[in-house]
């Protein structure tokens, strides 16, 4: 089986700071992988390398068996990014567009889908994140949880092979975390390939197929959640879990 995402020997430096150290990770189609670890451990940097929002100096990344184009291969990179959805901590919706326009815009501009068809797709995906009734609202008229669900629908509109979640609930008020995690769990249930950077350990336990623990730019351990939470292999993961649970 061709892996959905394959990362091999990834190295990244910010100037003299070694941010990612020899990262190797394979994610199979349909798998949900949660990446956790203390802040500054390189989780977000790693996930942002997968669609080259961050560049890296060494190593290879393949998406569905094809190499990730370089930062100068603008057209090829844009085409590859259409295959990888991303959800950000701060939602990053376009404030001057309605929820529907946020979702349909990339279909029209990146794929040349006609407006009516793009709108239909947008409404279908907004329905999937339970926001059909809010389709004509602007982001400022929506709660944080609703905004993040629009952002998920926006990414899903491109029908991606993989979804990347970069701390999707960290900017939310506690009462809104659940609605976003529920949508993510539904997605995982439906067979989406997902890589999630999150501090939500309940979600990791319930939904993840594997938990990747990172510290200081390195993958320290990779284990199924039941193993990771009951008997982590590394002392650093034990210390991390003792702190947050």
């Amino acid at each position: 089986m061709t892996p959905a995402v394959h990362i091999a020997g990834l190295q990244k430096w910010y100037g003299g700071f070694h941010a990612l150290k020899d990262i190797t990770l394979t994610v199979d189609p349909g798998e949900t992988v949660v990446i956790c670890g203390p802040s500054g451990s390189g989780k977000s940097t790693l996930i942002r390398c997968i669609n080259r929002l961050e560049d890296f100096q060494q190593g290879r990344i393949q998406i569905g068996g094809a190499p990730l184009p370089g930062p100068r291969e603008g057209r090829a990179l844009a085409a590859m990014r259409q295959r990888v959805g991303m959800v950000f901590q701060s939602f990053n919706l376009f404030p001057h567009f309605t929820a529907t326009e946020n979702c349909s815009w990339a279909l029209r501009r990146a794929r040349g889908v006609p407006e009516a068809e793009a709108r239909d797709t947008a409404l279908r995906l907004l329905d999937r994140v339970h926001l059909r009734d809010h389709a004509d609202k602007r982001p400022a008229q929506l709660s944080g949880g609703q905004q993040q669900r629009v952002a998920i629908a926006r990414a899903l509109c491109m029908n991606p092979e993989v979804m990347l979640f970069d701390e999707p609930t960290s900017a939310l008020d506690p009462e809104m975390v659940k609605e976003v995690l529920d949508v993510m769990a539904e997605l995982a249930e439906a067979g989406m390939t997902m890589i999630c950077v999150t501090h939500e350990m309940g979600f990791a336990r319930r939904v993840a197929d594997r938990v990747v623990f990172m510290d200081q730019g390195r993958i320290i351990e990779t284990n199924p959640p039941e193993r990771f939470f009951s008997a982590p292999s590394s002392a650093r993961a034990q210390a991390f879990l003792a702190q947050i649970l």
Partner: peptide
């Protein structure tokens, strides 16, 4: 905000 531009880039928009 830079995040909006990153979101647009991540969608593969030219």
């Amino acid at each position: 905000p830079k995040g909006q531009i990153e979101a647009a880039q991540a969608l593969g928009v030219p």
